[in-house]
């Protein structure tokens, strides 16, 4: 099945997945079952908008406005990132 997010999907981090400050190395880390993923600035920007309320289209619009980039251009990158997390079950969506 394709795990691409639809415009109205509201992504969230399921139980057992969270973002923390890495006190020793600096930056933010996504902690999930038996996995720690250091987030770069882009990953952090995307996931800070993932709250189970915000729709995927609104999330893209917000990122486009904040970083002054065309929405079409960033959609692909954001999809790739979120689909990767969904395949690992680190991200879920409310339809």
């Amino acid at each position: 099945m394709t795990l691409k997010l639809l415009a109205g999907d509201r992504p969230f981090l399921p139980r057992g997945v969270r973002i923390i400050d890495d006190r020793v190395r600096g930056g933010k880390v996504l902690l999930a079952p038996e996995k720690a993923v250091a987030l770069d600035a882009i990953g952090e920007a995307i996931l800070s908008r993932v709250d189970g309320e915000t729709r995927f289209d609104a999330l893209i619009a917000d990122l486009a406005a904040t970083y002054d980039a065309p929405a079409e251009q960033i959609t692909g990158d954001v999809q790739t990132f979120l689909v990767g997390l969904r395949a690992r079950m680190f991200l879920a969506v409310h339809a």
Binding site: I20, D22, R23, V24, R25, V29, L31, E34, K35, A36
Partner: peptide, 9 residues
């Protein structure tokens, strides 16, 4: 944790 360990099994 102080040393930087994030995951405890």
């Amino acid at each position: 944790a102080e040393m930087g360990v994030l995951q405890l099994h």
